[in-house]
Every structure is written in structure tokens, then in C-alpha cells.
Amino acid sequence: MKTIEQYIAEHPFFKGIDPSYLKTIMGCSNEVRFDIGQFILREGEEANNFYVIHFGKVALEIFTPIRGPITIQTIGDGDVLGWSWLVPPFHWHYDARVLEPTCAIAMDGRCLRTKCEQNHDLGYELLKRFTHIITQRLEATRLQLLDVYGVHCESNDDKRL
């Protein structure tokens, strides 16, 4: 069995991070497991954690009164779940529902926030890594908005004949 430390060190999110930071981060983490259907976080609740996913699958959902839950994105092996713990007012914007049994390392956001305030080098390092993830998600959302597989000029071909 691997230790939490090994999991964290091998996870793509922490790849190449300074071992001294790893130690600090370790101090704020514990291993968690979720079953299918379980909600890891819910919209509006205080965001005090983030999750480094080892394996599993989680759906980020928005619930609408008429359409019901709509999946915005699914998150899985090697991903990171949640960045609202970094940004005031520290509330979740989505629900996260487990689709497949999920094993993750939960990071205590409050604890990390304090440590980042004390050590800006650590704060900057973490912020860089989260910015990368936020950028990736933003790009993906933009691509999603473009609806690239849709037919945008239907029957234009016919009009030409």
C-alpha cells in the first residue's frame, strides 16, 4: 500500500513540487473515499476543502427546477476538485455527485489558507498550479460553448443549388 505522501507526490497536480512544501501540505490532508450517489460538496455550502482525486468519477452538477440536475463536467483520475476554498467568500458554486467509487486526498482549505498567508512562496506555488487548472477549465468551457459538432448553417448547401 502506498502512503498518502506517495499518492500526493505522484499526483499530476503536485508533480515536481518542492519536498518542503509537500510536507506542509501533507499536514493539512487526509484520505477520503466516496460511494456512488454521495455528494462531496453542495452548492452554497462553505468551501473549506479541495480534493486531489486518485481514482473515481465525480459529476459537477447544477440543479435547475425544471430540467433537474445538469452535468457541467465530469472529473476523474488525476484531476483536482474544487478551487472555491481559495477565493472569497469561500462557497461552492456547484454540487459534486459521485458517479463511480472515488478515492481522493482531501485537503483542508482553511489550514492551507493560513499556511499560504504565512508563507507566500508556498501560496504562489499553489496559486500557479490552480491557475493552470482554472485556465484549462476555462478553455474547455469556451470550446464547449463553441458547440463545434453542431450544424451551424443547416441546408446552406442546398441553397446554393
Binding site: V151, H152, C153, N156, D157, R160
Partner: peptide, 9 residues
């Protein structure tokens, strides 16, 4: 305009 037309534009 038609010269480079592929479905969609």
C-alpha cells in the same frame, strides 16, 4: 465565395 465552401460556410 463558393470556391472554398465547406459545409457551414
Amino acid at each position: 465565395m463558393d470556391f472554398s465552401y465547406i459545409h457551414g460556410g
